[in-house]
């Protein structure tokens, strides 16, 4: 079976528990396939946890959830050593980070110290506890959530840490018909349990392999460079897209093209992932009266595809 149809099945399967959110599901999958970490920003009760749970189920990955609070310490995530009387040795007890999918709930509620402990793990794929470096499992994904509204008593992630997330998505309210189905449907917990594995770890690695072979032509790279250039020169942007950001955009677009069943990237692919990849990497200049979503909108609608 072709990869893209397998992916479509996976999308449909998750869609069973997260109704009417196909685009967000695809983006979330795209993020995982591109080996990036995902930040979901939305109000409580919008299905953030459900999505992350479903992702893990469909891929049959180990899944841990950590609720981040202000008194959470790095050791609570990474693990710690305890003296074992029987063996007269220190025994390492791995923390919740030793998993394949880690759901970091309300990541902005914890202190920067704990945040950075997690972020090392995200960037390096390994953790250092008590002087000893331990590799994490592979694949290792972090799906973090944060609540954008209640900002009191939070530690907002600085730009450098936001940058570790390949994508940031918002779920948003479901459309009325989807919501109606939600009201009529059965318990989502039950539904989650019924989800079937649609993609294996092997599938995952072959998707990663195939995605890296997706072609990017000169014309497409020209378009990408026009986007980057615009973000760096337009007055509304406080600063432009970094080379890392541009690479993230290209990587995501490749994966998206693959998911669309194409062996080459077209500008539509870039545009599809652009808001998710870039909106958390932009900040508006002081005089610009809009947020980063408005910046992304402007970027997408001002830069010509053919030039």
């Amino acid at each position: 079976m072709a990869l893209d149809s397998k992916i479509n099945e996976a999308v449909d399967e998750i869609g069973k528990v997260l109704l009417g959110k196909e685009r967000q599901i695809r983006l979330a999958l795209c993020c995982l396939f591109a080996k990036g970490h995902l930040l979901i920003e939305d109000l409580p009760g919008m299905g953030k946890t459900t999505l992350s749970h479903a992702l893990a189920f469909v891929l049959r990955l180990d899944y841990t959830r950590v609720q981040f609070t202000s008194d959470l310490l790095p050791a609570d995530i990474l693990g710690y050593s305890i003296y074992d009387k029987g063996s007269s040795q220190f025994q390492f007890h791995p923390g919740p980070v030793f998993t394949q999918v880690l759901l970091a709930d309300e990541i902005n509620r914890t202190t920067p110290k704990t945040q950075s402990a997690l972020l090392e793990a995200m960037a390096e794929g390994q953790v250092t506890v008590e002087g000893e470096t331990r590799p994490l499992q592979s694949p290792f994904f972090v799906i973090a959530t944060q609540n954008p509204v209640t900002q009191s008593g939070t530690y907002p992630l600085p730009e450098s840490q936001l940058d570790r997330f390949l994508m940031r998505i918002e779920l948003g309210y479901p459309d009325p018909s989807a919501e109606r189905q939600l009201y009529m449907g059965v318990d989502s917990k039950e539904e989650l349990g019924k989800l079937q594995q649609k993609l294996s770890v092997d599938d995952l690695s072959s998707i990663v392999m195939t995605a890296s072979a997706v072609k990017t032509s000169d014309a497409l790279l020209d378009y990408l460079q026009r986007l980057v250039e615009y973000s760096r020169t337009a007055e509304e942007f406080a600063y432009g897209l970094s080379p890392r950001g541009a690479l993230a955009l290209l990587r995501s677009a490749r994966t998206w093209a693959l998911m669309e069943g194409r062996n080459h990237v077209v500008p539509e692919d870039v545009q599809a992932v652009l808001p998710a990849v870039c909106s958390h990497r932009f900040r508006a200049a002081a005089h610009f009266q809009g947020d980063s979503a408005a910046l992304v909108h402007q970027l997408m609608h001002q830069v010509p595809v053919i030039a």
């Binding site: 072609k215 032509s217 000169d218 014309a219 790279l221 062996n263 080459h264 990237v265």
Partner: peptide, 11 residues
């Protein structure tokens, strides 16, 4: 158009 402009690797 897509095959002429996008369907090959840069360079």
């Amino acid at each position: 158009y897509s095959s002429l402009r996008y369907d090959f690797q840069a360079g």
